[in-house]
Amino acid sequence: MKILVLGGTNFFGKKAVQLLLDHGHQVTIATRGNKKNPFVGRTSHILLDVEQEDHSGWKEVQAQRWDAVFNNICYTREEAERMLEVLRGLTDRVYFTSSMAVYGDQIGGFHEEDFDPMTYIIDPTIEITYGEGKRQVESVLFKQNDFKVTAFRFPIVLDDDDYTQRLHHYIDKALKNEVIEVYNLDAHVNYIKGTMAADFIVWAIENAIEGILNISSNQSVPFSQIISWLEEAVGHQLQVVVKDEIDYAPLSTRHDQYVVPDKAENLGFQINPLAEWMPDLMKRLTKERSR
């Protein structure tokens, strides 16, 4: 297939491009060029700033027809509307990265029907948070009829090469035997591994999957289990304090917040439980950060 990827040089987007290439697809990436193309000689590369309506890269996008488009960098209604206008008549399928954040601060676990973009009314006066931006993107794209749309609602994505280093933050504190502050040890959470996110993106594209899909590990655990795995990784008991106000707690939540990936599993995608990869990831990061 001839596939356009908006983004694709960072984290799980980069993993998805690598996998598409490994599967023999013809891939073009479109990026601002801030990062070097890691696939030189294997992909075409369009220089494009998606925030600029009149950027010259859009003409290059419009010069071709695409079997599928994967947008990993769509965060606002304006960007979704621009993509809709540019891609009209040029593709039949658009896939994009959404987020668990569309469910807001409700108590999870979340099923896909807990947020319906078809009935969502965009309020132009509302503050645009990350979650609100993704809600508006979904609303714009699912209400159009020019191409079929697939949204990937991921929770927090973790892996060895997570550039945000959210899990690394806890590893470093544990290694220094510093106090780890959490909101709620009983709150259930789940995450997805970066490689699994890439696997799912490619699987969905190759199988022409359509609609809204939660995708995460199929096992939610209380945050106390995350702490137990962390203690096992670093080899000693941790100092953990439960607080209402914390300066930085990138993985901890105040209440249950996780997505239920039953729909993806029922469609045939194989999902690994959190316990199959999280403890090993912690051990690898502990070894790396201990050097």
Rank of each mutant, 00 (worst) to 15 (best):
H45T: 15
V102E: 06
L274M: 14
K59N: 03
L185C: 05
I271Q: 03
N71A: 14
E78Q: 06
L90M: 08
E132D: 01
G13W: 11
L47S: 15
K143C: 05
A68C: 08
G131W: 07
F12K: 01
Y75S: 04
P279E: 05
W277R: 07
E138C: 04
A204Y: 07
A264E: 10
G108E: 00
P124R: 15
I121W: 07
D244Q: 09
H169V: 08
A30D: 00
T253Q: 12
Y120R: 09
R65A: 11
P273S: 09
V242W: 14
F152C: 01
E132I: 15
Y248G: 03
Q225F: 04
V86F: 09
Q165P: 02
Q237T: 14
V241W: 10
K2S: 04
E181D: 00
A151L: 06
F269A: 02
A275G: 01
Q239H: 14
V240K: 09
S217L: 10
D262F: 13
Q136N: 14
T97Y: 06
N272I: 08
P222T: 14
Y103T: 14
I180H: 09
L185P: 05
G33E: 08
E232N: 12
A233D: 04
G211P: 01
E231A: 00
V27Y: 11
Q136R: 15
S220I: 11
T119E: 10
H111R: 14
S139E: 07
E231T: 04
N10D: 02
T119G: 02
E138V: 01
R291W: 02
D280Y: 11
W66V: 13
D105H: 14
P273Q: 10
V241M: 12
G57R: 07
R82K: 06
V86S: 13
I215L: 13
A208K: 15
Y103P: 08
Y183E: 00
W58E: 03
S216N: 05
Y130R: 08
F200L: 14
L185M: 15
E112Y: 12
Y130F: 10
G108M: 02
H45I: 12
G57A: 05
I121F: 07
A101C: 06
K35C: 05
H25S: 08
A101L: 07
R166W: 01
H236I: 12
M282T: 09
Q165H: 09
G7Q: 04
E112W: 04
I128P: 00
V61Q: 00
E112M: 09
V17L: 03
M118L: 15
K287E: 10
